[in-house]
Structures are given as C-alpha cells and as structure tokens.
Amino acid sequence: MQNTVMNNVPVTFSRTNPFPAKVLTNVNLNGEGSKKETRHLELSLKGSGLTYAPGDCLGIIPQNDPELVTSLIEEMKWDPETAVTINKLGETLPLREALTTYFEITLLTKKMIQQAAELTDSEALKKLSSEENIHQLKEYIDGRDLLDLLQDFGPWKATAQEIVALLRKMPPRLYSIASSVSAHPEEVHLTIGAVRYTTHGRERKGVCSVLCAERLHEGDTLPVFIQTNKHFNLPDSPEKDIIMVGPGTGIAPFRSFIEERSVIKAPGRSWLFFGDQHASCDFLYQNELEGYQKAGVLTRIETAFSRDSEEKVYVQHKMLEHSKELFEWLENDACFYVCGDKQHMAKDVHDALISVIEKEGQMTREAAEAYVTEMQAQGRYQRDVY
C-alpha cells in the first residue's frame, strides 16, 4: 500500500482501491510461427506513489470477456439493464456491468452447484450435487464455467438476482513483475502468456491474459496494485552469485533481477536457464538478455528449446548437463531461484537439483535432499511457482 495526494487528500492505492495504470506498451514477444502469444506490457505508475522490489507481484482486477457475458444473458433471456445487488452492502449494478466487472463467471465451485440445484427441476443436477457423487461433481467442475452450468441443467426457475447470488467476487490475478523500478522509474512491466484452449466443445480464454492480449490497447487503463512477495527476493548482498531457472513466462521476475543488478552494478555472477518451444520465435527478451551477457551483467545463459530437436530438451536437462559448474556455484554460496509452472517444471527442476548435488557432491540421495532442505532454510533456494 502506498500513498499519493489528490486534491490535497492522501489516497492509498491497494487491493481494495486499485490504481488505474495507463498502458504505455502492449506487444507480442513471440515471433512468426510460434504456437504461443506472450504479451509484454508496460504500465505507468505515475502519480500513484506505488513502488516495488524485484520479486514482487502486480495484482490486476480484470474484466470478463464481453462475448461470454452476452452469451449468458442471451441463454437466460435476461434484460441486461436489470439492476442486481452485488454485495452485502446492498450496492447494485446493471446486470451486464455486474457480470462484466464484478463477478467471477469462468469457474465453478462445489458450493455453487449445490446451491444452483435448488433453482432448477433438473434431476441430473440434483443427483450430481449430492454428497455420494462428489467425484463426478469434481470431474464436472473441471474446465467448465457458468454458461456450461446454465446450458446443461435448465430450464431454470431463477431470477437474474438469484443466479448472481451464487457467484463470488472476481478475484485479482497476480503476475510476477518483469521490471526493476530502478531501471524504469514510475513504470511496471509484465510478461503474460495468453491462455486459450478448447474443452467440453467450447473455446476457453484466460480472463486476464486474453483481456491483455485482445482487448487492451495503449492509452487504456488497468486497475492494479502491488503485492509484495517476501519469499522471492534478491540476496541482501549484491556480491552473491544467483542461478535463475525460468522457462516461458517464468522469465518475468528474472528480467527484474537482471535489470536491478545491472543498475546497482552488482559484482556477483548470474546464470540464467531459459527454455521454451522454438529458438526462432519463442526466445523471450533474446536481444535484451544477450545484451546483458555482452555487458557482463549476465555471466551465463543456458537455453533449452524443446521442439528444436528430436528428443525434447528442457531446462532440467541443461542443469544436469552443466552439473559440475552448477555444484561449484552452489558450494560458493549461490542462491537458486525457480519461477514458472508448478505442476511439472518446478518438480522436475527440484529433482534435477538434488541429482546434481548427489552426483557432484558424491553423496547419497538422502544427503543431497538434506543439502537442498538446508538451502531452503537459509533462503538460498526460492520458488515463485503457479
């Protein structure tokens, strides 16, 4: 939370009172032929009083896809201008605005479905929401949204107010900040991968990522706030070496780390492991990173482009390939950072780290695991995974 002054009255911008940040730049980082779309977003914090440290996150309060909102209204034959109560304070909004700006409509919950079962004569929904069918319910929820629910279990005997009463408030989306405020005063940069996929017969879009990719233009504003991250920071001493593993959009906080270390002329060495699909179109921030390497700010860059070879090569394979030097850096008290996919990458990188220590330290698996646990306790192994 930070303060600024408007009309001589101090204003604090926070999660509950986000700052309308103006979009300065919004470009696609992926080249021709890429299967991905990764947006580089530059936002102005001018006049907000907001500041941040490398490793912090930016919260965005997004809006829902207007096409999805229209589909919901048409499905239920609602009047989009009907006033609906949105909270316990009794505040109201026109239905279309409420569904666009206030409510989460792309995720279902067990509680929501159990409450919805009381608003329809559908036996199928009553059966699905019963306690003995909990596994089928979980299966149904996965990858489905409010429109699916309304289409699958009508006819509904519910007003628009009764349906919106089932919904929770739109939660903010958090993104690792991809800039250093020392390098870009009064600005904040983000690296956002557009989420698009097809499931259950419909194309789905990430609420915030596709807003940024498709509907956000230079000059527009986004409601934002700073979320500090006390568990993902540069070492206190700029003399310490850092090892950064950040494939795909996991590069974001490391761009911030590298920019910060460049500005403060940190003497410590830095080693980046970056991976994606193709070197030709998916090497995010390639020119910047190679420039930092030439300038000596980045000591080493190891890249893994999984679709450029017969066998898929990932960042963890590059760690194993350079195990000797990696272990030497760790023995020299280097800090080890991982950012990106929690489900697969972070787990594989964790296992590779233990394997490197086991092999090069000539120790048992248990001893290598204890080494890693000790690194975590010392704050020398930090993860920002999602």
Rank of each mutant, 00 (worst) to 15 (best):
N3D: 01
T4C: 07
V5R: 01
M6P: 08
V9R: 15
F13N: 00
F13K: 10
F13A: 05
S14E: 02
R15E: 12
T16P: 03
N17G: 08
N17I: 10
P18G: 07
F19N: 09
T25E: 08
N30L: 14
N30M: 09
G33W: 12
S34M: 15
R39M: 01
S44T: 09
L45Q: 04
K46T: 12
L50A: 14
T51C: 13
T51P: 10
Y52I: 15
G55K: 02
I60G: 01
N64G: 03
N64I: 06
D65Q: 15
P66F: 03
P66I: 09
S71N: 13
E74I: 14
W78H: 01
W78I: 09
E81Y: 12
E81A: 08
T82P: 06
A83V: 07
L89E: 07
L89Q: 01
G90W: 12
L93W: 10
P94E: 05
P94R: 09
R96E: 13
I105L: 04
L108H: 02
K110H: 07
K111A: 03
M112C: 00
I113T: 04
I113W: 09
Q115Y: 13
E118A: 14
K126M: 11
K127V: 11
S129C: 15
N133C: 04
I134K: 07
H135K: 14
Q136D: 05
G143N: 02
D148L: 15
D148W: 13
L150E: 06
D152S: 09
V164D: 00
R168S: 06
P171V: 10
P172Q: 03
A178V: 00
H184E: 03
E186N: 00
L190Y: 03
Y197T: 05
Y197E: 04
T198L: 07
E203R: 07
V207P: 01
S209P: 10
L211D: 02
L216D: 00
P223V: 09
F225S: 02
T228V: 07
T228P: 13
N229S: 05
S237Q: 09
E239I: 06
D241M: 07
D241A: 07
P253R: 01
I258P: 11
R261Q: 09
R261Y: 10
V263M: 15
I264K: 00
I264V: 10
K265L: 15
G268C: 10
F273Y: 13
G275M: 08
D276K: 12
H278I: 12
Y285R: 11
Q286A: 07
N287V: 13
L289Y: 03
T299Y: 15
R300N: 12
I301D: 00
I301N: 03
T303G: 02
A304T: 08
S306T: 14
D308Q: 14
E310V: 11
K312Q: 13
K312S: 14
K312A: 14
Y314V: 00
V315T: 04
L320A: 06
S323P: 02
L326H: 06
L326A: 10
F327R: 06
F327P: 04
D333W: 13
C339G: 05
G340N: 12
M345F: 12
M345K: 11
A346P: 12
I354K: 06
V356W: 10
E360Q: 10
A367Q: 01
E374Y: 15
M375P: 03
Q376A: 05
R380T: 04
Y381R: 00
Y381F: 13
